[in-house]
Amino acid sequence: MALPPSTVANPDDKRARANAAQEDVLLREVDDAVRQDQYAEAAQKYGKPLTAAVLLGLAAFGGYLYWENHQKGVREADSEALVSAMDQVERGNLASGDTALAPVISDGNPGAKAAAELLKAGIALEQNKPAEAATIFERVAADDAAPQAYRDLATIRAVTARYDTMKPADVIARLKPLATPGNPWFGPAGEIVGMAYLDQGNQAEAGALFAAIAKDANTSDTLKSRMRQMAGLLGVDAIDDVDTVIRQTGTATPPSTESQ
């Protein structure tokens, strides 16, 4: 799982820029004084302020290096913990994987924390704890500090985990903003909304949505195939280009039956 880079702003940036600007002005004035052969006056007038500006600039730069190195260390630690947790999950060690996520969830940066919580919720689903998983997903979805992509994914997963206990109308209302063409989550969210339409008995809406997903350029081939089948069952043609579909599915072109 790729983690987004940290977006924490450097608190010393503004001060460093101000110090740099001040230093630049002072250097320009010193240069003017030198050109006018006023060495002694320049040294007396600008020596201490210039030294202070340089020292402040060096201090700010040192603080920036420390902060950047600290952030890099945090990101590396978060990544290592996430990779370790995923390795444990892949081996079937769900409890160990869950334990490995604890430090990231408690102290990780917003992106790493959200990723860790999504994985933790996935572990809960594997452990047949849908209610616990849904609670975690909802927490990520409501986290303003988390990357929007993670929040949207958490919203979809929360609805999926609670689908059997939700009214179709509530499912549609929750996911409709994501189930629109152009949205990165159009396919996954739209499929769930389409199933909710079917549960309402609204086959026309479901068929049209499934067909739109199948025709969307950003839909994965696997989802395209599934959506074409669903749309076809509902009497909606979801195929614009037969040759493209044949290439995607690997189906051979049927032989010609024309008489010789």
Rank of each mutant, 00 (worst) to 15 (best):
N128Y: 12
A149C: 09
T155R: 08
Q88P: 13
A85K: 09
E132I: 05
G108I: 01
Q127W: 11
K120C: 08
R91H: 15
T99N: 00
E126M: 12
L101H: 07
I105E: 01
S96M: 14
G111K: 04
A121M: 06
A100G: 02
Q148F: 14
S79Q: 15
R91L: 07
E117D: 10
Q148C: 07
K129M: 04
A114Q: 08
K113D: 04
N93W: 14
G111F: 12
V83D: 15
R151K: 10
L94H: 05
R151G: 01
A142E: 01
A158H: 00
S106T: 06
E90Y: 12
E132C: 06
A146R: 04
M166I: 07
P110V: 00
N109P: 04
N93T: 11
I105S: 01
E138F: 07
D107F: 05
T99V: 12
G97R: 06
G108S: 03
A142L: 00
S84P: 08
E132G: 04
A134T: 05
Q127H: 13
V171D: 09
N128M: 15
I105C: 05
I172H: 10
L82D: 02
P103V: 04
T165G: 07
N128K: 10
D98P: 08
P110N: 03
A121D: 01
I172S: 07
A145Q: 15
E126A: 13
A124G: 11
K113L: 06
M166S: 06
M86D: 07
A161R: 00
D98F: 11
L82Q: 04
V159Q: 00
E138Y: 01
E80V: 15
P103T: 03
A154S: 00
S106K: 06
L119V: 09
I105F: 07
D143M: 10
A102G: 07
N128T: 15
A77F: 11
T160A: 13
T160S: 09
E80D: 15
V83R: 10
A149R: 04
A102N: 06
A158L: 08
A112F: 10
E117Q: 14
D170F: 14
A77N: 03
A100C: 07
V89I: 15
P147F: 15
A145G: 03
A134S: 02
V171A: 11
